[in-house]
C-alpha cells in the first residue's frame, strides 16, 4: 500500500552550497511522480532527503500523515519503509541474488517462510529466478538493475524511489525495466518517485512530473499540462526539441513572428513572448507559409527530420518526404502553439 508524499519548502545545503532551494511538491497516494532536469539540478539530492539519506537545512517532508524530516529532527532512514533503487545499484558483492532479497526481508521482520515465498514471487516478476544463486559481479547491466529493483520492492515499501533506473541501458532493456517497474508497483501499490533526465521516460511512467534546474523547481504538472502549457522557456526547451520564436503580441491570443501571425493556446503575460514551436507543429508545403531554407535532412523513426532556417531563426520540422540541403520550402504552422513570456524565470 502506498503513501502520500509532501515536500514542503525544502532547502538543502552542503557547506556553503545550496543544492535544493525551497522545493514544494505534493504526491498523492499510489501515484508515480517523476523529477526531471539537467545534471546537477538537485533531483537525486531531494529524493535522498525523502529517503532519509540527506539532512534538511529547512522545510519538512511528510510521508502520509507523519512528518519524517525537518531541519531539527528526522525519522531514521531505516524506519521510513522506503525502497530505493540507486543509480549505481549499490548491490552487495558478497550476497547472491536470493540473499539480497533475504537480507532486506529479514531487516523488515518478515518470517522465513513468508520471505521464501515473496522472494520466489519477486524473482519471477523480475525474471531472475534462473539467476537466483549468482553473485552481482556475474550479472549483466540489465540483470543487475533488475536485482536492484527486486531488492527495493521485495519488502513492498509504501514509497519506492528510483534514481535513473534505465540510465546506461540499451533501449530494449530499458523498456523491459520500465515494464518490470510498472508490474511490480501495480501489485504493491507503492507510491513511486522517479528521477530521470529523460523526458520520454518521465512522461511514459509518471502521472505528474516536476522539472528542476539548479536546485529549483521550475514547474510541476501532468505531462499534458507541461507539454501544452510550459511556464518558462527552460521548461519548454527541456521537454524536447522546441524552438523558441521571438514574437510580438498583437492581441490576447495572436502573435506576430517570422513565421507569420500565429495563434496561441495560452494568454501570455506581457507583450514580448516566445512562441514554442515543435517539429510536429510545422506543415511543409503550406501555400500560405513563409519560405525557408533547408539546412539539414535525415531519416528518423519513419519520418524525415528537416533543419530549416527563416531569417535568423532555425528550427526543425518532420516531413514524410526528404528534401535537399539548400532547397527552399514553404512552411506554415498548424493549430495553436504554447507561448511563454520572455520575462518568465528560467
Amino acid at each position: 500500500m502506498g503513501t502520500s508524499v509532501s515536500i514542503r519548502e525544502v532547502l538543502i545545503r552542503a557547506g556553503s552550497r545550496v543544492l535544493v532551494q525551497h522545493m514544494s511538491v505534493e504526491v498523492g497516494l499510489g501515484e508515480t511522480h517523476a523529477f526531471i532536469g539537467p545534471s546537477g539540478a538537485g533531483k537525486t539530492t531531494l529524493l535522498r532527503a525523502v529517503a532519509g539519506l540527506v539532512r534538511l537545512s529547512e522545510g519538512a517532508i511528510a510521508l502520509g500523515t507523519t512528518v519524517v524530516a525537518t531541519a531539527d529532527s528526522e525519522v531514521p532512514a531505516e524506519e521510513r519503509r522506503v525502497g530505493f533503487v540507486f543509480q549505481g545499484h549499490g548491490l552487495w558483492p558478497h550476497f547472491n541474488v536470493r540473499e539480497h532479497l533475504a537480507f532486506v526481508l529479514k531487516c523488515a521482520g518478515v518470517t522465513a517462510t513468508e520471505a521464501n515465498s515473496r522472494i520466489n514471487t519477486v524473482l519471477g516478476e523480475v525474471g531472475l529466478t534462473a539467476l537466483a544463486l549468482r553473485k552481482p559481479d556475474t550479472l549483466s547491466g540489465g540483470e543487475r538493475q533488475r536485482l536492484a529493483i527486486a531488492r527495493a520492492v521485495a519488502t513492498e515499501p509504501a514509497l519506492l524511489i528510483l534514481d535513473e533506473p534505465t540510465a546506461s541501458l540499451d533501449p530494449i532493456t530499458a523498456d523491459e525495466i520500465r515494464d518490470c517497474i510498472r508490474l511490480l508497483t501495480r501489485r504493491t501499490g507503492s507510491t513511486v518517485l522517479l528521477v530521470t533526465h529523460d523526458q520520454r521516460e518521465a512522461f511514459a511512467m509518471a502521472k505528474a512530473v516536476s522539472i528542476m534546474s539548479a536546485g529549483r523547481l521550475l514547474q510541476t504538472g501532468t505531462p499534458e499540462v507541461l507539454w501544452n502549457h510550459p511556464d518558462s522557456a527552460a521548461v519548454a526547451q527541456f521537454l524536447g526539441e522546441a524552438t523558441l520564436l521571438k514574437g510580438r503580441l498583437l492581441d490576447g491570443r495572436r502573435v506576430e513572428t517570422c513565421l507569420g501571425v500565429l495563434s496561441l493556446s495560452d494568454v501570455p503575460r506581457g507583450d514580448d513572448v516566445d512562441v514554442v514551436i515543435r517539429p510536429d507543429d510545422l506543415v511543409l508545403g503550406d501555400p500560405n507559409g513563409v519560405v525557408a531554407d533547408v539546412t539539414s535532412s535525415w531519416f528518423r523513426e519513419g519520418k524525415y527530420r528537416l533543419g530549416l532556417k527563416v531569417g535568423a531563426s532555425a528550427f526543425f520540422a518532420n516531413s514524410a518526404t526528404s528534401a535537399k540541403i539548400g532547397e527552399q520550402v514553404r512552411v506554415g504552422v498548424k493549430g495553436s502553439c504554447p507561448a511563454v513570456s520572455r520575462s518568465s524565470p528560467l
Partner: peptide, 8 residues
C-alpha cells in the same frame, strides 16, 4: 545506504 533504507 541500500541496506539502510531497507530497514537494517
Amino acid at each position: 545506504e541500500a541496506a539502510r533504507v531497507a530497514g537494517a
